[in-house]
Design a binder for these strands. Structure first.
Length: 594
RNA sequence: GGCGGGAUAGCUCAGACGGUAGAGCAAGCGGCUCAUAAUCGCUGUGUCACGGGUUCAAGUCCCGUUCCCGCUACCA
C-alpha cells in the first residue's frame, strides 16, 4: 500500500463562472497529479470547494439583485458543474458556507486565540456609510495626492505607481456606489505573523526542492511580516466565536483566513460523509503523509506563509509556544505547486474587458479532454503562456486527433477487420520486443516527471510512445501480411498492446478518452473513474451539491496491462473529432477574435 | 517605487551541475494506403533581448540597460 497523499486544490472564488485560466492553474494539474498518484497505489485525498465569503461576493450579489447566499448558491452550482464536466476527481469538492466549515474555522480561530497568535487590535479602516461594511482599499478611488491623477485606487496610483493609503486620497469615493467612505477606528483581530516568522523560516529552510521562484518569493515575504487583520466589518462570513463578538452582526472572520482552512474542514467533512469520521487524520496527523497544494502564482502567499502560519499557531509552535489545538498536531504543506498564468493576447484574462473564455462554454463546444490536453502540454507551468485559438486547433487536430486518436483507430480497426478480436502473438520478433520495451520503460520515466509535477515533459514523453507505435505500424505494414496471418496477428497484437500502454500513460491527462480506449480494446468496467455531483444534507443546514467519486473502484494502474487475445473488437469510432480549422482564425461565436 | 518571473529557429516552447544550441508545428522532397485526406522517412533555419565582466570555455554565473508579465499583503 502506498503512502497517504493529500491533494489540496485552491478554492475557486464563487463571484462568477471560472475561466480556463483558473482551471489551468489549479484544476487540471492537481487532477493529473492525483490520478497518477492513485494509479501508482497511493492513498489520495483530493479536496477543495468554492470560496464564498468576502466583499466581492456581496458586491456582485447586489449587482445581480440577490443576497450573498443566493449568489454563492448560484455560482457554486455553476463551478461545481464545470469542474465535474472537466473530470476533476475530487474526493470532496464542497463549499465554505457549510456548518462544518464554520465550526472548523471557529475552532481553529479559538485555538490560535488561546495560544496568543490571534490578538485584538484597534485600527483605522474605511467603511461604507450606507451599509456599515468594511470598504477594501481596492474599492476606493480618488485623486492621487502625489501626482494628481484622478482615478487613483485606494492602495496604489496606476498613473505614478506610488503606493497609497486610502486616507490620503483627495475626494475619496467608493467604486461600488460612489459615496464618500467614512474612516473610523474599529477593533479587529489580527493574525500575529511576526511571532510565527521564526518557525516558518525554520520550516521553509527544509523545503529545498520547491520551485525556486516559490522559495524566493516566500523567503522575501518572511523578511517583512506584519500582523494581518483577519476580521472585517461585514455581515457575510464566519462569526467570531468569542463572547461579545459572536452576536455582532457586522463583525466577521474575513475570507482569506477562512478559505485556506477549507483544506482541513473539507477533509473532515469527507471523513464524515464516508462514515469514518476519523479518516481525515491519516492525511493530517501522520507525519509520513504528504500534502501537495496546487494554485496559481497569485495564491502563493496564502499557502507558503499564511496557511502554514495558522497551522503552526494551532500546533502551539510559534514564539508564544502554546498547546496543541483540538485537531492534534497538524501537518504543514510538503509541496507548493504553483502555476504561472494563462494569458490571452499577452495579458491576463479579464472579465471586465470581455477578454475571457469560460470553462462552461469551452466544455460545451470542445469537451473536457481537448482542454485537458492543451493545458497539460502547453499550459503555464514555468512561465505565462498565451492561449490562442489557432494553437488550440493545431494541438487538438494534429496531435490529439491525428497522432493519438488515429493510432487507436487504425490499430483497432485493422484488428477488427482482419480478426474480429484481439489477435494472438505467436511470432514475436526483435522489433516487437523493442517497441514493447519502449512503452514499458515509459512508465518509470513519465511517472517520475508526474511526481515532480513536470506535466509538459511527462506528456511529451508519453506522446513519444504514440509516435513510436505509429512508426512501428507503418514499418511493419500488417496490411501486406495477408499470406502470413500468424505474423500479421503478432504485429496487430503488439500494436494493440502498445495502444493499451500508451492509453495507461495518458490516463491521468485524458481520463475520458482513456475509458473509451479501454472499451475499444474489448474490455469492460470502469477504467478511469469520474466525479459525480451528489446532493448532500447537513444537520440544521440546507442541502447542497458536492463532487465525490468512487475512485478506488477504477481499474487503472500505473503499469502495462496485458491485452486479452480473443476479446471481441468492434469497429471503432474516432476518439477525438477534428475542429474546423477556421476556428483558429475566428474563435468561436461566443469569443470572437477581433 | 519594491519584489518576482520572462526575453532561445517563422510559430509554441525545452534547455539540473557553465563544455562547439534542441523538440514539435509550419515549409520542401520522397514512401505507404490499415486509419479521422490519417501515417512513415529525409532536408533547412538561430549574432540564445542589448552592453560589459568572470572563465581555457557562458543561452547557462556576475553587473548594468531595454521591453513584456505578475504580485505588492484591506482583490482573493
Amino acid at each position: 500500500m502506498g503512502s497517504h497523499v493529500l491533494t489540496s486544490v485552491a478554492w475557486p472564488y464563487a463571484n462568477g463562472p471560472r475561466h480556463i485560466g483558473h482551471v489551468s492553474g489549479f484544476g487540471v494539474p492537481s487532477d493529473v497529479f492525483s490520478r497518477y498518484m492513485r494509479m501508482s497505489g497511493h492513498q489520495v485525498l483530493m479536496v477543495s470547494g468554492t470560496d464564498e465569503h468576502g466583499t466581492p461576493i456581496s458586491v456582485q450579489a447586489e449587482a445581480e439583485g440577490m443576497t450573498a447566499r443566493e449568489l454563492a448558491d448560484k455560482y457554486n452550482g455553476v463551478i461545481t458543474s464545470d469542474l465535474q464536466g472537466l473530470g476533476l476527481s475530487y474526493d470532496l469538492f464542497t463549499r465554505t458556507t457549510t456548518r462544518n466549515h464554520y465550526r472548523v474555522v471557529q475552532d481553529l480561530f479559538t485555538a490560535l486565540f488561546k495560544n496568543g497568535y490571534v490578538v485584538p487590535k484597534k485600527a483605522m479602516g474605511a467603511v461604507s456609510p450606507s451599509t456599515g461594511r468594511t470598504l477594501p482599499d481596492r474599492y476606493i478611488e480618488g485623486t492621487c495626492p502625489i501626482c494628481g491623477y484622478d482615478n487613483a485606487r485606494g492602495d496604489q496610483c496606476d498613473n505614478c505607481g506610488n503606493q497609497l493609503d486610502p486616507v490620503d486620497l483627495i475626494n475619496p469615493r467608493s467604486k461600488i456606489n460612489g459615496e464618500a467612505p467614512k474612516f473610523v477606528e474599529t477593533e479587529h483581530f489580527f493574525l500575529d505573523l511576526p511571532s510565527l516568522a521564526g518557525s516558518l523560516e525554520k520550516w521553509l529552510a527544509t523545503k529545498t526542492e520547491w520551485r525556486p521562484n516559490v522559495l524566493r518569493f516566500s523567503h522575501n515575504l518572511l523578511a517583512d511580516l506584519k500582523p494581518r487583520a483577519i476580521t472585517r466589518d461585514l455581515d457575510w462570513g464566519v462569526p467570531v466565536p468569542l463572547d461579545g463578538w459572536r452576536d455582532q452582526p457586522m463583525k466577521r472572520i474575513y475570507v482569506w483566513f477562512d478559505a485556506v482552512i477549507g483544506y482541513l474542514s473539507a477533509s473532515i467533512e469527507w471523513a464524515q460523509r464516508i462514515g469514518d469520521p476519523d479518516a481525515w487524520k491519516r492525511w493530517w496527523l501522520d507525519p509520513d503523509a504528504q500534502g501537495y497544494y496546487f494554485m496559481g502564482k497569485d495564491n502563493i502567499v496564502f499557502h507558503s506563509v499564511i496557511w502554514p502560519g495558522i497551522l503552526l499557531g494551532q500546533n502551539g509552535e510559534g514564539d508564544h509556544g502554546g498547546e496543541v489545538g483540538p485537531f492534534g498536531k497538524l501537518n504543514l504543506p510538503s509541496e507548493i505547486v504553483s502555476s504561472e498564468f494563462l494569458t490571452m493576447s499577452g495579458s491576463k484574462f479579464s472579465t471586465s474587458r470581455g477578454q475571457v473564455i469560460y470553462v462552461g462554454d469551452f466544455l460545451r463546444d470542445f469537451g473536457p479532454d481537448a482542454l485537458r490536453y492543451f493545458i497539460s502540454v502547453a499550459g503555464p507551468e514555468n512561465q505565462d503562456t498565451d492561449f490562442t485559438w489557432s494553437e488550440f486547433v493545431r494541438r487538438t487536430n494534429f496531435e490529439l486527433a491525428n497522432e493519438w486518436g488515429n493510432l487507436v483507430n487504425r490499430a483497432v480497426s485493422m484488428a477488427h477487420k482482419q480478426v474480429g478480436a484481439v489477435p494472438e502473438a505467436n511470432d514475436q520478433r526483435d522489433v516487437d520486443h523493442e517497441l514493447l520495451g519502449l512503452s514499458r520503460g515509459a512508465f518509470d520515466e513519465v511517472g517520475k516527471l508526474l511526481q515532480r509535477s513536470r506535466f509538459k515533459q511527462a506528456m511529451s514523453e508519453a506522446m513519444r510512445v504514440v509516435s513510436a507505435a505509429n512508426a512501428y505500424i507503418s514499418n511493419q505494414e500488417p496490411w501486406k501480411l495477408k499470406d502470413q496471418p500468424e505474423r500479421r496477428d503478432t504485429v496487430l497484437n503488439t500494436a494493440l498492446q502498445v495502444v493499451s500502454d500508451a492509453n495507461t500513460l495518458l490516463t491521468p491527462f485524458l481520463p475520458h478518452a482513456a475509458q473509451k480506449v479501454h472499451e475499444a480494446l474489448g474490455r469492460d468496467g470502469v477504467w478511469a473513474a469520474q466525479p459525480e455531483i451528489r446532493t448532500v444534507s447537513e444537520a440544521d443546514g440546507p442541502d447542497y451539491p458536492v463532487l465525490m467519486g468512487e475512485y478506488a473502484a477504477e481499474q487503472a494502474r500505473w503499469q502495462s496491462t496485458p491485452i486479452r487475445p480473443g476479446a471481441p473488437l468492434q469497429k471503432p469510432t474516432p476518439l477525438f473529432p477534428k475542429l474546423d480549422e477556421s476556428l483558429g482564425e475566428t474563435g468561436p461565436d461566443w469569443a470572437k477574435l477581433d
